[in-house]
């Protein structure tokens, strides 16, 4: 009966994952390998193709005020415009992760301050994990899989923009080698969110209890669906250490951007998350 409960939990989290996240690993891999009936993604590999593809790099629901803000601002440079679009999509993704978190059984019963803390500290880690399936060693899908941006192009941007994605590529190549599927990913994301060691948590015990249940579900699922992958559960959990370093480095780069780019403005939601993070 206990394993039936764990399987039901895994199924529930997988359904939430499909409901809240627009681009699954299965779909992303199909696009990247060309095994989809949809048209191939538009490739951005230089400034010319970036300018051509720019209209496509909009968030799904580009709000009018967002457009106005972009028009009114004095962001002439293509890097800044591009990273402005990335920020809009990231803010949208934060709201998707929030909905996913709320669907984890027991999450909304936690102290509201602790819910805020878990999301504040967990959400960038979750986003880094979620971008991994969109990447291969040569580039990454963006804009819901409509665009493929090459790794070389991202590396060619001026400093510090060129330094933002390379660590994520290095991590993604290692993470993708574990070959998790979307249902494994759903459980792993829930484990990350339910980390009881985030700074400032008020009531750790119920969070750890929830995480332990999800960890059991993840362990059971990995054993059943990847029987030949030795120590996969341990290998997946080890990735959580890399994630913390990636987030620390990412926040430092954003800090650097704020200091060096006069026209840089950080999305208010991302500001909230990154302020006093580490």
């Amino acid at each position: 009966p206990e394993s039936a409960d764990l399987r039901a939990l895994a199924r529930h989290l997988y359904e939430s994952y499909l409901k809240y996240f627009p681009l699954t690993k299965a779909k992303a891999r199909a696009i990247l390998s060309g095994k989809t009936s949809d048209s191939a993604p538009f490739v951005i590999h230089d400034m010319k193709s970036l300018l051509e593809g720019e209209q496509m790099i909009n968030s799904r629901q580009m709000p009018a005020q967002e457009l106005r803000r972009a028009e009114m601002s004095v962001m002439h440079e293509v890097e800044l415009r591009f990273f402005h679009s990335c920020q809009s999509r990231s803010a949208e993704a934060v709201s998707e992760v929030t909905e996913f978190a709320k669907s984890i059984p027991g999450f909304v019963s936690l102290d509201l301050n602790d819910q805020v803390t878990l999301l504040k500290y967990g959400v960038i880690e979750v986003l880094i994990i979620m971008i991994a399936p969109l990447m291969n060693k040569d580039g990454t899908l963006i804009s819901y899989g409509q665009i493929f941006m090459t790794r070389e192009f991202l590396k060619s941007l001026r400093k510090p923009f060129c330094e933002m994605m390379e660590p994520k590529f290095e991590f993604s190549v290692r993470f993708n080698a574990l070959e998790l599927d979307d249902s494994d990913m759903a459980l792993f994301l829930a484990v990350i969110i339910l980390s009881g060691d985030r700074p400032g948590l008020l009531n750790v015990k119920p969070i750890e209890d929830l995480q332990e249940t999800v960890l059991h579900a993840l362990e059971l699922q990995l054993k059943t669906s990847h029987p030949d992958s030795l120590q996969l559960f341990a290998k997946v959990l080890q990735k959580m250490t890399d994630l913390r370093q990636l987030v620390t480095d990412h926040v430092q780069l954003i800090q650097l951007l704020k200091e060096t780019e006069v026209d840089w403005c950080l999305h208010p939601l991302l500001q909230e998350i990154m302020r006093d993070l580490y």
């Binding site: 809009s88 934060v94 709201s95 909905e99 709320k102 999301l119 504040k120």
Partner: peptide, 21 residues
């Protein structure tokens, strides 16, 4: 904490309706 994280707080409190970000 809630004061410093108003948007996050609002996302947590609202139902799944689209939130004006």
């Amino acid at each position: 904490l809630k004061e410093k994280h108003k948007i996050l707080h609002r996302l947590l409190q609202n139902s799944s309706s689209p939130v004006d970000l």
